[in-house]
Amino acid sequence: MITAERKPMDEIMESIDGCGRILLVGCNECVTVCAAGGRKEVALLASALQMASMKKGRALDVREMTLERQCDPEYVEELAPHIGQVDAVLSMACGCGVQEIARRFKTTRVFPALNTTFMGASEGPGIWAERCQGCGDCLLGLTGGICPIARCAKRLMNGPCGGSGNGKCEISDDVDCAWHLIWERMKELGIEDRYEDVISAKDWRTGRGGGPRRIVREDLK
């Protein structure tokens, strides 16, 4: 999923400064799962914004909505009847959702209430960790199902650097050494001899190096 975290309250308040009516829009997808921008978080932020405004002696009208998917034009259209009645939209979706609203409603300001962080997985209650950087040319088949691009701090593709110790990365004891994990996994699978296959320089064109990416599926057009 795409993970996100709520921005600090002060930053959100500053972004909507001068607005009297806000449409606060959540998303039912990834940000609901990572407890950052679902219906519940929308309600909590709405209350927090109103309290913070009251403290400043201002009235703030916050309308709450949570869309099925904020990155999908079909659902974003549901905001149309409400847009004319607010000064700005505050989105609790990932950056994709924020931009979809901005694209659809050209004369309405939209602000992000979240910082979109990474594509990751849950490692336990309240913990999410990065797993994928969307390089567009998956090499998990070569690395035992553990991605060195997303999970090695130096995105090394041919083994651990000299800073790996006790299975941890040199940058923090809270970060596993991706190559230690890959090596252990290769041993479990009995394919440790594959480690010595050199992975050659990556073609980053399939990733961000090729500029903004699009997928066009003729069969679905």
Binding site: G159, C161, G162, G163, S164, G165, G167, H180, W183, E184
Partner: peptide, 20 residues
Amino acid sequence: NPFADPFELRVARLAKKVKA
């Protein structure tokens, strides 16, 4: 770095650099 972990991988890591 022969002293970094996993130690058992460090000869293979050298072999990979030789191969390169």
